[in-house]
Amino acid sequence: MIKKDIVNKVAGMMNLSLSEAEEVVESVFTVVKNALVSGEKVGLHGFGNFRVVKKNSRPGRNPKTGEEIMIAARKVITFKASDKLKQAVNHLPPEQDE
């Protein structure tokens, strides 16, 4: 599924033109993105939480050359699915995974 599929669904549901629906869907992700960029956690009830986590710098190794390098401190986004979402994806047998 890609963004366009969501846009089509929203357009049909809300009786909006495709370009209007696209604008709304786009702004949903932009607003979430901006919150995360400012370091804010985004909690969407029934879906999950997006969080920005600070990672300290740590020593690492280039797996190809074996050379030791320092992995710089950085901020990463983590997503934790809500129980509802976890349950929704677990009715399929695990064998069907890619």
């Binding site: 890609i2 809300m14 993105k33 986004i77 399929l92």
Partner: peptide, 29 residues
């Protein structure tokens, strides 16, 4: 109306995942 749309957006991601589909949102993840 915005609330209905926000719910639709995240419900459709949930639906796609529950069918085993993956969801690709350009610019987001």
């Amino acid at each position: 109306d915005t609330e209905v749309i926000v719910n639709t957006v995240f419900n459709s991601i949930t639906d796609a995942l529950s069918k085993g589909d993956k969801v690709e949102l350009r610019g987001f993840g």
